[in-house]
Simulated scan of single mutants.
Amino acid sequence: MSSTYSPVPELNLLKAFDDKTDESYAHWAWMDEFGELEFLRDTPELMHGLLGFASANGSGSLYALWKRDDRADLATLPVVLLGDEGGSHIVARNVREFLQLLGVLEADLACDEECVFERDEDEVPAQAEYLAWLEENFGLTPPEDAWDIIGEAQEELGEEFADWINARTP
């Protein structure tokens, strides 16, 4: 059995960073087991179409990759937020945008049926360390505003994702 966290190199690097960092470095909860979301087993199309990888906050919201097609490079798949309040929304067009998003969020993300929103603003003492890691590993810096990433992702993919998930939700 492989000790690799996932088939996504970017998430493997994030997991390694997460494992060695004792302090909070971004507004989110923690890395979860990578893979299909077993709680969706009653709706197999949803379970097979979403690959969970992190808890977005302490109340049950999750981040997942949306398998919108059969591409080989999973890092290019959109990242969605599955909210503990029932909503589901695109938050980044791909994993690298998601990594940038983590570096600029001012609070944990949550969502309801209508929208994505920030809540539970806490300090992130290791944020500078995370931003240095992001630059060193990917040559990326976050934009000034998290909503630039979220807005562009939703504009490009939001309707397609909403159609996809609504067609599979009982």
Rank of each mutant, 00 (worst) to 15 (best):
M1H: 14
M1A: 11
S2Y: 02
S2C: 01
S2T: 12
Y5A: 06
S6V: 09
V8F: 11
V8M: 11
P9K: 12
L11S: 10
L13Q: 15
F17E: 07
F17W: 08
F17S: 08
F17L: 07
D19P: 01
K20H: 02
A26W: 14
H27N: 14
H27Q: 15
W28N: 03
W28K: 13
A29N: 15
M31E: 06
D32K: 00
E33F: 07
L37D: 08
F39D: 12
L40R: 06
E45D: 13
E45L: 12
L46N: 09
M47E: 15
H48C: 04
H48V: 03
G49H: 10
G49Q: 08
G49M: 09
L50V: 02
G52I: 05
F53Y: 13
S55A: 13
S55N: 14
S55F: 10
S55Y: 14
G58I: 04
G58P: 08
S59P: 00
S61D: 13
A64M: 09
W66G: 01
W66P: 05
W66V: 02
K67S: 09
D69S: 07
L74H: 09
T76E: 07
L77E: 13
P78Q: 04
P78L: 09
V80T: 07
L81C: 01
L81Y: 12
L82I: 15
D84C: 11
D84W: 14
E85G: 03
G86N: 04
S88C: 09
S88H: 04
S88G: 04
A92M: 10
V95K: 10
R96F: 00
L99P: 03
Q100W: 05
L101F: 11
L101Q: 09
L102G: 11
L102C: 10
G103I: 02
L105H: 11
L105A: 05
E106P: 12
D108F: 05
L109P: 04
A110E: 12
D112Q: 03
D112C: 11
E113C: 00
R119D: 01
P125L: 03
A126W: 08
A126M: 07
A128G: 03
Y130S: 06
A132V: 05
L134T: 00
L134I: 00
N137M: 07
G139V: 04
G139Q: 06
L140I: 01
E144F: 05
D145Q: 12
D145K: 14
A146D: 13
W147T: 00
I149G: 05
I150H: 11
E152S: 11
A153W: 02
E155P: 00
E155I: 00
E156A: 15
L157S: 06
F161S: 01
A162H: 14
A162I: 00
D163T: 03
W164R: 08
W164E: 01
I165G: 01
I165F: 13
N166P: 00
P170C: 06
